[in-house]
């Protein structure tokens, strides 16, 4: 428990005493991840085989594509 508390304090103090440059970098990382996962992944990059529910159906679809 004491170890967990020390780890928590280590990160907490690190983040709260971060320099302005560090904060800017975190903002960039968060904005970028939001664009990637909440916009691109959700609206533009649906896996092409997602419509097939089982591995067997996915295999069948790919075999159809490869042997047509």
């Amino acid at each position: 428990m004491e170890t967990l508390k020390r780890i928590w304090l280590f990160y907490y103090e690190g983040f709260t005493s971060m320099t302005p440059m560090g904060k800017t970098l975190w903002v960039i990382i968060i904005v970028k991840l939001i664009i990637m996962f909440a916009v691109l992944r959700l609206f533009f990059f649906k896996p092409a085989l997602a419509n097939y529910n089982t591995p067997e159906a996915k295999s069948h679809a790919v075999i159809e594509n490869l042997t047509k």
Partner: peptide
């Protein structure tokens, strides 16, 4: 190092998105 790491982080994830969406036969194969 931190600037380069932070700005570059996760740019590779998009490659994995493309595998699944644009190259699905490859991705499965």
């Amino acid at each position: 190092f931190a600037i380069n790491f932070a700005v570059g982080v996760a740019t590779g994830i998009i490659l994995e998105f493309e595998f699944g969406t644009n190259w699905s036969n490859y991705s499965w194969f």
